[in-house]
């Protein structure tokens, strides 16, 4: 499994995508922006490029010829997607801390980058994984349909969450108002988000393994 993860990181993924989060997430420094877009950049840019790279390099045949199980092939790939997601969110969070210090008196219309907001981002990526990974492993190389479905689902989630965050005074208070200073509340939302992310990714992995077992490597 470890060898497969390293194979993806060394061979499969262009190093640019390991550096990319440090550049794109600098947009966190834009005051009062709609920060939900930043994790979405991962879904829009990094993932299709990664999956396209694997496909064009015949990664599937290359990997199947190695002494590895089909289960480990999926486990490693899901781990790699998870690592990339964590890298993306972690860098965004670091920039977010700077944003909070740089503009302490800003009135946020959209969600402010407090811990609770990052909890929502984890939920968003959880939905992304839950849709993308099982759909992708129907063939393990076609990713167009899986991308459209997973991106639509994440945008819907982000759109609805942000709309509720603006329309509902209760939700707005939790994320941008007095709730933002309640560390315990913020931390619990973040932890809940992480738990949902891990749970959905594990479910996605299990469905993907079942589907990949039936895939014929042509």
């Amino acid at each position: 499994m470890y060898n497969l993860v390293m194979k993806d990181l060394k061979l499969g993924i262009n190093p640019w995508f390991l550096v990319f989060p440090f550049f794109i997430n600098a947009l966190m420094l834009v005051p009062g922006w709609i920060y939900f877009i930043l994790p979405l950049y991962f879904c829009w840019i990094t993932v299709p490029n990664m999956l396209g790279g694997f496909r064009s390099q015949n990664d599937l045949i290359f990997t199947t010829m190695m002494p590895v199980t089909k289960k480990d092939i999926v486990k490693a790939r899901v781990t790699v997607i998870g690592i990339m997601e964590l890298l993306h969110l972690a860098t965004a969070m670091i920039y977010g801390i700077f944003t909070l210090y740089l503009y302490p008196n800003l009135t946020y219309y959209f969600f402010a980058p407090h811990m609770g907001f990052w909890g929502l981002c984890f939920v968003m990526l959880a939905i992304f994984n839950l849709v993308l990974i099982p759909m992708y492993y129907k063939t393990a190389y076609k990713y167009g349909g899986a991308m459209v479905a997973s991106i639509t689902a994440t945008i819907l989630f982000a759109g609805i969450a942000q709309w509720v965050g603006i329309q509902s005074p209760f939700v707005s208070d939790i994320f941008n108002g007095s709730g933002a200073d309640n560390t315990l509340l913020q931390l619990s939302i973040l932890i809940a988000g992480i738990v949902i992310f891990v749970a959905c990714t594990i479910i996605a992995y299990r469905i993907a393994v079942k589907r990949f077992m039936k895939v014929e490597i042509l």
Binding site: N3, M6, K7, K10, L11, Q57, N58, D59, I61, F62, M66, P67, V68
Partner: peptide, 19 residues
């Protein structure tokens, strides 16, 4: 069938041998 054709032999071997 070609795999990772833009990689150097050295890079590919380093990955493959671990398996």
């Amino acid at each position: 069938s070609d795999f990772y054709t833009r990689s150097k032999l050295k890079t590919l071997t380093d990955v493959v041998k671990k398996f």
